[in-house]
Amino acid sequence: MSIEQQYRTRAKELLSSGEVKMVIGYSKGSTPDRRRPAFISTPEDVETLVLDGACIANLSGYLVTEGLLSDEKRVAVFLRPEGIRAINILAAEFQLNAAQVEILGFNTEGNEPTALSGSKVDDFAELIGTLKGIIPDTAGEELYKKLEAMSPQERFDFWQSEFSKCIKCYACRQACPMCYCRRCIVDNNQPQWVNTSSHTLGNFEWNIVRAFHLSGRCVECGNCDRACPVNIPLRLINRKMAGEVLEAFDHFAGSSQTQEPVMASFKKDDTETFIL
């Protein structure tokens, strides 16, 4: 049985038995290489589920949709390892109760999805441990190395030219599972810290603020990158921040659901190299 069929059967069981009220997975998209999120509530509809190499979007963000989990019922969701880490972060930040999440875990190597064993977020603790410090998606690896080799001025110029493309559509924010705030800082106009118009200053402010808000929280699922209509390599900023946080505080985002947020917690032996 193919992994797709296997997971369809599993989804059907979960829905028929009433164990979950919904399965969030992938269905066919508008083009052959794209997949669209599917929200399935009846056992009959599981046949529309697709699981193949094109299923790369991180679906964890849909779980924090207002009211979805407030009835205490469970929801099953298709997740790659980054998505599972995202569940840990969302649980650590009290956005969901991980016990309500049934995980249909899979990984994609090459073009073929492989099943991951386990159904609760804690079942994947060992797997997550082995991922520490490993970049989940090597997209942009070459560019990242090039950026690291640049002088600060060159890097600044690079990002300035990238950010000049930004049209402030906030698609990156909408696609990101970590951007769950009810009111984003950019929507606060009293005062208007981040300029809404698409000029250099406002674009810088927005993208830098987002990078800071994601440091120690980004799982590098790449949702922002793929959502960006003007192709800014957004994940590379977050990758940089993830590296910094790992190096300075040994913090690997999403390691467990009890992990304290790195920016809100402190330890006596935290490095203080930033204090001059």
């Binding site: 930040e93 009290f94 956005q95 705030c181 920016m263 917690s265």
Partner: peptide
Amino acid sequence: ATCAGCWGCVLA
């Protein structure tokens, strides 16, 4: 009204 309840402030 706007608090997302992440409770980072509780820790901080």
